[in-house]
Design a protein around this nucleic acid. Structure first.
Lengths: 234, 234
DNA sequence: AATATTTTTTAAAAAATTATTAATATAGAA
DNA sequence: TTCTATATTAATAATTTTTTAAAAAATATT
């Protein structure tokens, strides 16, 4: 593999330079940004393996940047937060960060976190992330975030896509409502089966030949949903 | 299923009483301890589903208790830590805790965490539990929540499924009506043998070759039902 | 064998769960 | 800002599952 790519976002240029230098010394290719808006732009173009993100930022704050990145990517994110501000850290994790370090920090600590997070990310991707999942006549293209049903490309909304891939990663297993809600909407939504129902309904409209008699996503009354690897005859 | 068991460890007896009361109100069976040493003893004997653990404890501190429990068990552990002490929280998670709440906390928050942690733990076990039970020509597919009889898959309703797996986990033993009702419907239904009869009837329709002369689920008049591991000749 | 008890079967009513639809709210993009 | 796509919410229709009750069959008891 070539050099890992890091994106560092901090408005204090001293700190930014400092982190940059150390990451480069550790063998990273480093991009940087000093505002939230710039961060999102650079993120698009640099496609980093890890993002190091200060919470205090002008324009769009770090939490918001984190959420937006999370919306479109599973990249590793480490937040930098002021010491003793546990609230920030917790919010960061809720917004989808993988870890955080408190300011001021020793470089070694930051590097250790970065490496730990990358290690975890790597072991996850080798396990789960093939870039295409096939289920009968259904193809899920994880990279392009679209599905191909009977050869026809179909656009899915973010929620629909997450829902479909979650189920697809658990083929032939009834996944309980709670678990799906946990995974897609977040733990605090475990109760909101109605969200799930509406989304499953829309997803069926898009991927099932006859949405009223679903082939792929079958419902298990009282329990949850299961996606089936349907047999096709060719 | 019977009540979930919680172990609460705190040296401040006011807080302890407070948490106890709320957990009991939420349907938990609660054990408690006020020191680290006592906590480890009670843990052994009570075998709880979740441990709520204050970090500040006399004798052995909460972190150490957490580590020692982790050494021998995968039970869910929630740490209670002083507000703003982010270091504690981080160490707690490193020591193997599943979550933490900061003091002072609202009861609702603690209960929400407890339930979230238990939900996660539960969904993990359903995933890992062996995914098939075989009894002669009968296969119970735990992941897909269906039975396969002579190669033909049949869908089961929640009650039917619970009933069948309960019996299957007690092969070749007559399970008394009362016990089944306790386990499937709940202890307040121990009396409702008619529910059981109807359900057994429907289950037989689905799994027996000749429901009138059941091979698998045999009835023991006046006592209960037994599922048999029938021999097949191949 | 006759009677009582227990169990099975059946069907209908009731309850719970799920699907569908449409209106409203929200977020991101032009 | 306004526009567009998406998500949430709520109401209602459809379906599935459970409960209830009663009659028929089987089993046990006297």
């Amino acid at each position: 593999m070539s050099k890992p790519v890091a994106l560092v976002v901090d408005d204090e240029t001293n700190i930014l330079r400092f982190i940059r230098a150390n990451l480069i010394a550790s063998g990273f290719e480093v991009f940087s940004a000093t505002t939230g808006t710039e961060a999102l732009e650079v993120f698009e173009s640099s496609n980093p393996d890890v993002v190091i993100l200060d919470i205090m930022l002008p324009e769009i704050d770090g939490l918001e940047v984190c959420r937006r990145i999370r919306n479109v990517s599973d990249v590793s994110i480490i937040m930098i937060t002021a010491k003793d501000d546990i609230q920030d850290a917790v919010e960061g994790l809720n917004a989808g960060a993988d870890d955080y370090v408190t300011k001021p920090f020793a470089v070694e600590e930051l590097l250790a976190r970065v490496n730990a997070v990358l290690r975890r990310a790597k072991s996850n991707t080798t396990q789960t992330q093939t870039d295409k999942i096939k289920l009968g006549n259904l193809q899920i293209d994880l990279a392009q975030r679209q599905v191909v049903v009977n050869g026809k490309a179909t656009h899915l909304t973010p929620t629909e896509f997450k829902l479909l891939t979650y189920l697809a990663n658990n083929v032939d297993r009834v996944v309980p409502h709670e678990e799906i809600l946990d995974a897609i909407w977040g733990e605090e939504y475990w109760d909101c089966t109605h969200y799930l129902r509406v989304s499953v309904g829309r997803l069926r409209q898009k991927i099932e030949t006859d949405p009223g008699n679903p082939e792929y996503i079958v419902t298990c009354s009282g329990v949850g949903y299961m996606i089936r690897n349907v047999k096709v005859n060719n």
